[in-house]
Simulated scan of single mutants.
Amino acid sequence: MTSRRDELATRLGEVRARIDRAASAAGRDTGDVELVVVTKYFPASDVNHLVDLGVRHIGENKDQEAGAKVAEIARRDEVTVHFIGQLQSNKAGHVAAYADVVQSVDRAKIVTALDRGAQRHGRRLDVLLQVALDDDEGRGGARPGDVPALADLVEDAEALRLRGVMAVAPLGGDPRRAFARLREVADGIRAGHPDATWVSAGMSADLEDAVAEGATHLRVGTAILGTRPSLG
């Protein structure tokens, strides 16, 4: 019977091969594309297997689940924890205690709350601005036209560091076209904030399109962990 570790190793290898092929097709260096394995709903035991397999970036969506799970990571100092879910201002202080990167900053209230929380915990957080590429308000994100002002606000925050932008492809839309739009927004932000070089885009189904449009970080969950939580 295949062990959970072996299953993860096989799936991880398949995703890494897809990234290699996509980077080659786009004329990019695979080393310029970082894989963030989305571990929401899966146990810390899976995270520990992934770390053993060389994964160094994990993504979490739910604060209530993530805080406890991060505390169980055996080699925590080797892992960068990305919070990628929609964030409420009243949860921001708690997220600031364990996340290293917050990818879903989409309004001024979140910037203020994260900055306050990071200062309270004596930490400095990397931040990505989530860009809305459709009209679905339930998925979060700032309008492209509002992103520059948000970038300036993060830049002025004492405990936050602006690293770039993030987006989710619209449901039912053309992901390549959406990621091309994100690339335009990213270029505009980088013009005023040269260190904001990260572009987080692409998931299990559309990572190739994201790589083709310059994504530096891919958020992949299902293709590696499966569709339902492991029991251990």
Score class of each variant (00 low, 15 high):
residue 25 A to L: 10
residue 116 R to N: 05
residue 65 E to G: 07
residue 32 D to Y: 07
residue 199 V to H: 02
residue 170 P to M: 02
residue 103 Q to S: 12
residue 40 K to G: 02
residue 172 G to M: 07
residue 110 I to L: 09
residue 25 A to H: 06
residue 155 E to D: 12
residue 221 G to E: 07
residue 161 R to T: 05
residue 221 G to C: 07
residue 132 A to V: 00
residue 159 A to G: 03
residue 101 V to Y: 05
residue 99 A to Y: 15
residue 33 V to K: 10
residue 226 G to R: 04
residue 183 R to H: 08
residue 50 L to S: 06
residue 179 F to S: 00
residue 143 R to G: 12
residue 100 D to K: 11
residue 101 V to K: 01
residue 38 V to Q: 12
residue 57 H to C: 11
residue 123 R to N: 13
residue 63 D to G: 04
residue 36 V to M: 14
residue 52 D to I: 04
residue 69 K to P: 14
residue 201 A to R: 04
residue 84 I to F: 15
residue 186 A to K: 01
residue 109 K to S: 13
residue 77 D to N: 15
residue 139 R to S: 03
residue 32 D to M: 13
residue 179 F to E: 01
residue 138 G to K: 00
residue 139 R to G: 00
residue 81 V to S: 10
residue 226 G to D: 09
residue 194 P to M: 00
residue 186 A to I: 01
residue 49 H to M: 02
residue 62 K to T: 05
residue 90 N to R: 12
residue 168 V to C: 05
residue 109 K to A: 13
residue 129 L to Y: 04
residue 180 A to W: 05
residue 216 T to C: 14
residue 91 K to N: 08
residue 88 Q to G: 03
residue 199 V to Y: 01
residue 119 Q to P: 04
residue 48 N to P: 06
residue 153 L to P: 00
residue 96 A to T: 03
residue 5 R to N: 11
residue 200 S to E: 14
residue 34 E to Q: 13
residue 232 G to N: 06
residue 117 G to M: 14
residue 88 Q to S: 06
residue 102 V to S: 08
residue 215 A to T: 03
residue 86 Q to A: 11
residue 68 A to V: 04
residue 56 R to D: 06
residue 9 A to W: 07
residue 198 W to Y: 02
residue 35 L to Y: 11
residue 174 D to I: 01
residue 166 M to G: 03
residue 150 L to A: 00
residue 122 G to D: 09
residue 18 R to H: 11
residue 222 T to Q: 10
residue 191 A to S: 03
residue 89 S to M: 10
residue 67 G to D: 11
residue 29 D to P: 03
residue 30 T to R: 15
residue 44 A to H: 09
residue 78 E to G: 13
residue 121 H to A: 15
residue 189 I to R: 00
residue 160 L to Q: 00
residue 183 R to A: 04
residue 99 A to V: 12
residue 5 R to I: 13
residue 174 D to W: 06
residue 51 V to G: 07
residue 156 D to Y: 08
residue 190 R to K: 04
residue 162 L to E: 00
residue 49 H to N: 06
residue 167 A to T: 01
residue 21 R to E: 15
residue 205 A to Q: 13
residue 231 L to H: 15
residue 128 L to P: 09
residue 70 V to I: 08
residue 210 A to G: 04
residue 20 D to S: 12
residue 64 Q to W: 11
residue 129 L to M: 08
residue 217 H to M: 04
residue 44 A to S: 12
residue 231 L to D: 15
residue 117 G to S: 09
residue 165 V to Q: 00
residue 149 A to V: 01
residue 217 H to G: 02
residue 214 G to R: 00
residue 39 T to C: 13
residue 169 A to P: 01
residue 121 H to M: 10
residue 33 V to A: 09
residue 148 P to H: 02
